[in-house]
Amino acid sequence: MIEYTRVIKHETDRVPGFGAEVMRAPGCEKLASCIQCGTCSGVCPVSIYMDFTPRQIMALTRADFKDDVLRSRTIWLCVSCYACTTECPRKIRITDIIYELKQRAIQSGYYPEHFAVPVLAREFTDMARANGRITESLLVMRMYLKTNWLAALGMWRLGLKLMSTGRFSYTPEKIEGRAELEKMFAAIDTPIPDYSPSGAPGEETKGTQP
């Protein structure tokens, strides 16, 4: 059963300048030329699970509807397969625009607490920066502990199989040049806004899965 809901957008919902700001990021310049043909939504392998299709996200971004865009489930569903980017007749780098939106959502805390995608991204970056390498098995365990440790219990069979086939690593991989790596990052570190979801702009986003 398809439910039809009509959503009216108001001028006051806009955050003027948001679209222009996104378009200044590398790879996002061509968004202004979107013709709303929907090719991106058609080729996207996960668009059927999205609240807004990629085409709608492009329109909302360009029209400054920051809240709708950064709260949408769509940006977290993007798997970076680049199908939309390759097919876009206007050569808009849609995947890069979604990356830009994810970065903004993570930086300003626009996501529910314990939501797996941004948590994984944060755990990934922390591990990569500290160790220089990713140990997948330990990364996934950390993600489950911070999001939904009950779900981890449901994965025990897969975990056991990986252990018995020697595909599960128990100790973290580390590079020798960890101090060198840290020095590189420190050279360009700028104070960043609070990453934690506590800075969420609206109460209604907290604790709800998008």
Partner: peptide, 18 residues
């Protein structure tokens, strides 16, 4: 010699320059 993680898709979602 002593290569490090490429960053994959996850790092791009957090900070492009890094």
């Amino acid at each position: 010699r002593d290569w490090n993680c490429c960053g994959a898709t996850a790092y791009m979602s957090v900070d492009e320059t890094k």
